[in-house]
Amino acid sequence: MDVVLQILYIIVPAALIAGTPLMLTAMGGLFSERSGVVNIGLEGLMIMGAFGGIIGTLMFEGFGFGAASPWFGILFGILLGAIFSLFHAVASISFRADQIVSGVALNFLALGLTVFIVREIFDRGQTDTISSRLFRTNIPLLSDIPVLGPMLFSRVYVTTYIALLIVVLVWYVVFKTPFGLRLRAVGEHPMAADTMGIKVQRMRYIGVLLSGAFAGAGGSVYAVTIAGNFASGTIVGQGFMALAALIFGKWTPFGAMGAAIFFGFAMALSTSAQQLPGLQNIPQVYFLILPYVLTILALAGFVGKAEPPKALNQPYTKGSR
């Protein structure tokens, strides 16, 4: 029993930490896709966020903000993500570009642009490492609870709990407010929504901008907690994994949250399974591909059918049937 607990004390925090950026980014994807705009560009938006997180932190460290700098760095990452998502919004909403192609271009552009700027500023392929990182802490009181304390509330990042609160907030906004109803209406049946006086294009712009902000948050949180600096290899696939979490979670906030933590669990297992009794004989590759295989199975209906919003990937033209 003690051995199992020891394992859980390592794996569960690791899963939560790996899942946090995915969770935040998946929330962004939720806003965009619920409004009817596919966002393959989450990866690129996360890259922008991670870049903004590091550059912002370095900048505010320079201003003498000290330990508060990573928080301002995260805000900067959110801002950059939101601004950068305008590319996708303008191309796919106003210019009626293919949303998937536009998203792919966004990923290319983000990587090219950030690494280009990094090379111009630092004269090499990566930024300096930030000195005031967010560190793992014990949550007061809660970490003293037996069993659950060491598992869930010890040596964690505060950002994980903020992310969990944000998920609840997103659920409330999307399912319990008029704004959320309008957002979903635009994604399910834009013409009906338009007839009811909802401004379809505007709602979709808001959806995409929010996706940029949340993916920016996901990227910057990853950067200031796990990575510590930014290079072309900082974000490799986390954005696509967040998209997978969104789909595996059937486009709902709590579903996506669960999927993100589960994918985090698989990632944590893939790196630490070698040290765990009973698991060291399973090749690492199974844990690595688990999230992707599960997503495909979910889409095919073997793990509960995942139904996308009805008007996803369809540009809306006023007056067309």
Binding site: V101, V104, F108, L109, G112
Partner: peptide
């Protein structure tokens, strides 16, 4: 890479 990405954007738009 930036130029290629922008070309995709422009063709798609």
């Amino acid at each position: 890479e930036i130029i290629i990405a922008l070309i995709i954007f422009f063709v798609a738009s």
